[in-house]
Amino acid sequence: MNPFSYQRADTPEAALHAVTADRSAKFLGGGTNLVDLMKYNVEHPTALVDINHLSLSEITPGPNGGLSIGALVRNSDLANHREIVAGYPLLSQALLAGASAQLRNMATTGGNLLQRTRCYYFTDTAFPQCNKRMPGSGCGAIQGFNRIHAILGQTDKGANSPETCIATNPSDMSVAMSALNATVQVQGPKGKRSIPVRDFHRLPGATPQVDTVLRPDELITAVDLPSARFAKNSWYLKVRDRQSYAFALVSVAAGLELDGNTIKSAGFALGGVAHKPWHSPEAEHALIGQPATPDTFRKVADLALRGAKGYEHNEFKIELAKQSIVRALTVAAQGVQA
């Protein structure tokens, strides 16, 4: 870990001022991701701007009958919030499927959106190649141990290309937010803007070092949820190597709005498969107007995985994702709450 300065900001403006003044400064949320990466010498901010004292810890009524979640609302508070549990059980389930109770008590909504990949070649500086950590160095994962890596939307131009990256986004929360079509509210030196969460995270493209469209001098202030449509019929399914406290091999966030057995509208995203929560407009659209049957769900699963490509250790994710999609949509359609 490198030496760094610490300062506490009391208003968003002060926080923004501090990061604009020092280009390698970073906001400190719960610190559960940033501080780990600093210890591993992957992140080396020269200044930490502690935003924990900003008043962004409330969940308030949002525009159009939705809810607005302050960027500092802790994952555990969000998961257990009465209106979230009642109106957005999908989000609550996704949060509770993530990390451990202790981590969720610290993790913030904004920090969770920005948590970085768990790719081993990224988090261990002893590996010589990682385009995300050292742009231009190549990708260690593509010919390495790539069980947790992406099958959709990755950039694969060979191990030595400066563009290659097959990393996955590890967040559960973001997958649910993508299915729910939430909006991220940010504030920068030039003012505020809204970014649909589905556009917030990026695919690696030619610049795998850039995870999101958020600019370094922008602060997440809130995440807005649209009015609750999937309260009755939704499910977050997380497939992992142990029953708890493991990142998803594959996860599915599925929300359905039903009219009898016919799907009126749907929200649907995948985790563990891509550089961002994977939202396939095509697959989601294919649900609309269809009967909520295994047949429909299988078609949707095939659509969602179209173009998927696996590697030595993660080929299995393609089939696993399909089976998981069918299961999650089936459970959502049944309206089981747990």
Partner: peptide, 20 residues
């Protein structure tokens, strides 16, 4: 074990899984 460098890829208790 990473096949080309011989390093343990998952050298943390987050990624080296033991039962919870």
């Amino acid at each position: 074990i990473d096949p080309s460098t011989g390093r343990t890829a998952n050298e943390s208790l987050a990624e080296y899984h033991v039962p919870v």
